[in-house]
Simulated assay, not measured.
Amino acid sequence: MKIKEIKVGGLASFIESEEYKQLNPKPVTEERAISQFNNPNADIGHTALIYVANGPELLGFAGLLPRKINRAGIPVFSNTCWWAHPQKGKGLAVPLILKAIEESGSSLYLAESTPGLKSILEKTDKFEFSEPIEGIRGFIRFYFADIFLNRFKQLKYLSGIIGLGDVVLNFLTAPFRFYFQKKFEKGSFEVESLDTIGREAEEFINRYSGMDFIKKGPEDFEWFKKFPWLTVHTGEKPYDYPFSHVVKRFGLEYFVLRKEGVLKAFVAISNRDNLARIPYIYFDKEDILNVVQSIMSIILKRRYNSLVVFHPGIVEYMEANRMPFLYRKKEIKFTGVTKSIYKYFMAKPYLQDGDGDVVFT
């Protein structure tokens, strides 16, 4: 039993190998491997996966995603997954993350860390962490049937009855959403959907990304959209993987918001089974009112069930103003970087929600 590494250049052949086919659970999904193989920021010699197995039994793994520091071009790595078997992998969590730090050249960051993960990493004395970052999850429609089915798959026959309740509750609360839809349409900028990032959008993103820690260019946005990490599948899971990866639907859309033809904002909105997130957004803070109304108009028209957002300006606005949320709750995350790249992070201390793996999942 030893720690093994898979390089970016070896990902495609690894998921076709007999070793991968026999491993259970899998240390990487096929979609994630193909996506990372096409990473425009990666060299073929960069390490993408570290894992430990006892024969065909997976005991633990950690994933690395090569990125680059904004406007410096310095390679850094995002830790996108980290898992150890709860019984047979005890004692492997810290060695795996230490190996990840080593393989990254001590240039590792975590865009979204939980308090529990943060406490483990602090014991290594190799990381600096941000203050808690507050986000909002706003619930827009009732979807108790989906929640019930995810938690109690063996009671699938009851989901139809619960779903009928969702239909009734959503019918009764429709006037509430209709009121906000009309209100937001009045204040919305002109919304234009983008398939690719052209010169105008690229220059706009560059203008408003000065404090972003991670570089995002047209090639990155093309990669995000073309190579998601999720398995879109309506039946049983095709194979075991320790993290959620099978969904009924997933999509990533890009929009520019205009006023009288002038570009005012760029926003990326993802949809994972009717959960909307905003992995990337760029705008002038003076336009916050119209930007929020534009985003919420899009989300209401698409009938998404809920929205998660961490952008500090948008969170502050939503906390201070009435929104079409039936219920809202606070989301907390931490960002952390290894001490060797902390000075670069402090110079550009903003990690967008998509700078980890959210944009792919």
Rank of each mutant, 00 (worst) to 15 (best):
P238V: 11
E236Y: 12
G261V: 14
Y208H: 15
R199L: 14
H233E: 12
E219Y: 07
R199K: 15
N274Y: 05
K285T: 10
G217N: 12
F243W: 09
V191W: 02
I205E: 07
E260H: 08
A268L: 02
S270T: 12
K259F: 06
L194Q: 04
K285D: 10
D273K: 04
H233R: 11
L257H: 05
S244H: 13
Y241S: 05
V191H: 05
F250M: 05
G235F: 09
F283Y: 15
K237T: 09
P238W: 08
M211E: 10
E253P: 00
R258D: 02
E286C: 02
K226S: 12
S209D: 10
D220I: 03
T231F: 02
L252H: 06
L252N: 06
F227H: 13
F204N: 06
P279A: 10
G251W: 05
T231V: 11
V247R: 10
N271D: 15
A276K: 00
T196S: 11
S270N: 06
L263S: 13
T231M: 04
D287E: 15
W229E: 06
K248F: 09
L194R: 12
E190K: 11
G210M: 03
T196R: 12
G187T: 05
T234K: 11
L275H: 10
I197G: 06
R249Q: 10
G217K: 09
F221I: 03
F243A: 08
K237P: 06
A276T: 10
L230V: 15
V262M: 11
R207E: 15
F184P: 01
E236N: 14
F250G: 03
T231L: 07
V267K: 07
G261K: 13
K225E: 04
R207W: 06
S193C: 08
F221C: 03
E202G: 06
P228Y: 00
S209Y: 05
N271G: 06
I205Q: 08
K259M: 02
D212Q: 04
E236T: 13
I278T: 14
K259E: 14
K225Y: 04
D284E: 14
H233K: 12
D220P: 00
K248Y: 13
R272L: 14
K264H: 08
P242F: 05
Y282H: 11
R199F: 11
Y208L: 10
D273P: 08
G198D: 15
I197A: 06
E222W: 02
K226H: 09
K264A: 00
N274I: 00
E203T: 09
R199A: 11
